[in-house]
Design a protein around this nucleic acid. Structure first.
Lengths: 187, 187
DNA sequence: GTATAATAAACGAATGATCGTTTATAGTCA
DNA sequence: TGACTATAAACGATCATTCGTTTATTATAC
């Protein structure tokens, strides 16, 4: 029996993510994706049942990736200050290093008609549990989890996209942001 | 000579915005838009040169709308506290009341290949000038404008979308957020 | 104040291209 | 041989756009 080639599936994923960054969702057709991946359009259907399912599967795979990436960098014994610094810096690096993935996930998740068809993402709940622990240990103030989440991640997005390709400005803004968020969230 | 019907153009815009919320960019074809607007596909091309131009024109019209809406609610003599409260509350209302427009703009602006083709938005610079004035008057702390911007607007987005249709939770989170942002930004 | 000429809006139908998907066939390995 | 990958070719549907025509509104002439 000839084996399915997992490398080929990876090629498809990369092609999807690249095309969606370069041309947006409307520019990422099966034939373009196949051409980019160096395979036939029909082959895509060996690995995925439909285009919709394909996009959803890729999204679900990458949507949570950032959170495990983050949790890997975090240590139980870190001080609150260091924790916030690490989270923000790591998220910022992730956006810059995984630029294509980031924009794919952003585009996908800003489209309600796509997101509605997806099961809930799991990765985020681990982050919320971490917030709960930190509140219990009186490391961070007793603030609604969604707010903590919104303040840790959303402003960074703004800085990363607005200061894109202006490394110096981005860096100094990032450190200013970290100090502010530390002041705001820590007890 | 027959006149162009401005109502018809408005119908097209509304159709675009509705369809993009309901089905995403890929679902908003010219024929669907025309059907939704109650006109012929050919008529769309009397009002716009191409689909691309149409989307761009509609985006540019609405992308700035929120900032004028905001600036209208703001008074020179407001205290810093009230100012921040007003900005956050007004932005939150805007998202909820102009849901379709908000999601259209979000989807469009999260697609780099679309945004790159657009001229810079003007409305945001007025907000930045306001920040400059407030810093000069030592109402808000001397923080980078992009950071102030990111903290005033981005977390609200998160709360509005995550607490969508949970009015009570959203409201209490919003007030908590307002207090935190006031603490953080005011002198 | 009619009638007529001029013009642009508006339309349905058709354009070729491309879409997502399926089918028939060839190739590859156990 | 049987099971599976991979493909080229073909599918009907739909895409953005254009064409040829009709319709509605204006300006001019009497």
């Amino acid at each position: 029996m000839r084996r399915k080639n997992e490398e080929k599936k990876q090629k498809i994923k990369q092609a999807v993510i690249k095309l969606i960054l370069d041309e947006g969702f409307h520019g990422a057709s099966i034939s373009k994706i196949a051409r980019e991946a160096g395979i036939s359009p029909a082959t895509v259907y060996i690995y995925y049942n439909s285009k919709d399912e394909m996009l959803r599967e890729i999204y679900q795979e990458y949507a949570d990736q950032v959170y495990s990436y983050l949790l890997d960098q975090i240590d139980e014994n870190m001080s609150g200050k260091l924790l916030i610094e690490t989270i923000i810096k790591t998220y910022y690096s992730y956006i810059n290093e995984q630029e294509k993935v980031f924009y794919f996930v952003e585009q996908f998740s800003s489209c309600p008609s796509l997101v509605d068809k997806c099961r809930d993402t799991e990765g985020c709940s681990k982050i919320f549990s971490m917030f709960d622990e930190l509140k219990e240990k009186t490391v961070i103030r007793n603030i609604d989890n969604v707010i903590i989440f919104s303040m840790l991640f959303y402003p960074v997005k703004c800085i990363a996209t607005r200061y894109f390709d202006q490394e110096r400005e981005a860096d100094s803004a990032l450190h200013e942001l970290i100090e502010l968020i530390q002041e705001t969230l820590l007890v």
